[in-house]
Simulated assay, not measured.
Amino acid sequence: MARKPSSPGLPSQRQLRAGEIIRHALAELIAREDFRDPELAGVLVTVGEVRCSPDLKRANIFVTPLGDDTEAGRTRLAGALNRAAAFLRGRLGREIELKFTPELHFIADKSYDEATAIDRLLSDPRVKRDLE
């Protein structure tokens, strides 16, 4: 039986499945780990999404700190997690059952800001009038 090629630019089922496995494991790992870095000590982290490369050897992890939704707070958190990426990758390798543990790259998640901006735009009286 021939495999149906995935749409160009869209992640495969394998990438999506691996991303979710990594997301759940990292969220638990970050929550229970005691970090030496003062920027990570006591910070609650939301792991919003994990995007894996097609070969699953690289993972981009979108993170945001709970309670500090500023751009500077997100950027500081991503930087601190990138400094701890090798440590987290080692711990993650013991938690997940993938052939390779991907290289971790943390990115400040801006999707919540974008969703808020869209909500604000949709609640504008002029836009509501046009939608009705």
Rank of each mutant, 00 (worst) to 15 (best):
E95D: 14
D119E: 15
A72D: 06
D130Y: 08
Q13T: 08
R91W: 03
I118D: 08
G79F: 03
L131T: 04
E33K: 05
A2R: 13
R91S: 05
K128N: 06
I21F: 10
A41S: 05
R51T: 02
P54Y: 07
D130V: 04
R58T: 11
G90E: 14
A25S: 15
F35H: 08
R76L: 08
F62W: 12
N82S: 11
G48S: 15
L29Y: 04
D34R: 13
E28I: 02
L10D: 04
G67Q: 06
T116Y: 10
S123Q: 15
T70H: 06
P102N: 10
T46E: 11
L81A: 07
A72C: 00
R32T: 14
K128A: 13
S12T: 15
S6Y: 05
L98D: 08
R91Y: 02
R74T: 00
L92P: 00
V63Q: 04
V43T: 14
D113Y: 14
Y112H: 12
G93V: 10
R94A: 14
F87N: 06
F87A: 06
A115D: 09
N60W: 12
R129M: 09
G19F: 14
Q15Y: 11
P5V: 00
A108P: 08
R89I: 09
R32C: 07
S12F: 09
T46A: 12
P11G: 05
Y112C: 02
P8G: 01
R76T: 08
S6P: 05
D109T: 02
L88K: 00
E132T: 07
F87P: 00
R94M: 12
G19N: 12
A27Q: 15
S7T: 10
D68M: 04
G48K: 01
T64I: 05
L81T: 04
R23Q: 15
A2F: 09
I96F: 08
S53Q: 05
E71R: 11
L104E: 02
N60H: 11
A84L: 02
I30T: 03
H24E: 15
P8N: 02
G73H: 02
D69S: 08
N82T: 03
K110G: 05
A25V: 13
G19I: 12
D124Q: 13
V50L: 12
R58Y: 13
V127F: 14
R91M: 14
D34I: 01
L16T: 06
E49V: 04
V127I: 15
R89W: 11
A80T: 01
E132Y: 13
A2D: 12
A84E: 01
E20T: 09
A59Y: 01
S123H: 13
R36W: 05
R74S: 04
K110T: 10
